[in-house]
């Protein structure tokens, strides 16, 4: 025994099949809308792929950015080195040069008494 009543499903079933077949046929046939969607998808895919590759190239070419405290320390060290170098260069002009030993002997000569 069939589980469907033949009188009830015969004509209705034929109509639905036709509609479905038409729908499937329309869906299988590519149209302009489908082509545009494919193009948009492919363009976006290529763009995402190119961006990913560019990011990887940048990551290889340039190291990861230093932490802020490292940059500050580096700047401070360089500034200190510059100051020390400047002082080293300018110090001879800031501090008067030592007097020759004759300056000391002249004072001693005065203390010796006249005639020497």
């Amino acid at each position: 025994m069939s589980q469907f009543e033949p009188d009830m499903i015969g004509p209705e079933r034929n109509a639905s099949d036709a509609e479905l077949d038409a729908l499937f046929a329309a869906a299988r046939a590519p149209n302009e809308t489908d082509a545009g969607a494919a193009e948009r998808f492919l363009a976006g895919h290529r763009a995402r792929l190119a961006q990913t590759q560019a990011t990887q190239v940048q990551a290889i070419a340039a190291p990861a950015p230093r932490p802020l405290w490292v940059n500050r320390t580096l700047v401070t060290a360089l500034a200190s080195a510059a100051v020390i170098a400047g002082i080293s260069v300018l110090r001879p002009t800031l501090m008067p040069a030592d007097l020759p030993a004759s300056a000391a002997y002249a004072v001693y000569q005065d203390a010796l008494g006249e005639g020497w």
Binding site: P96, D98, L99, P100, A101, A103, A104, Y105, Y108
Partner: peptide, 9 residues
Amino acid sequence: RNVRPAVGV
């Protein structure tokens, strides 16, 4: 000012 070291200085 300083003076350079020498004999007796």
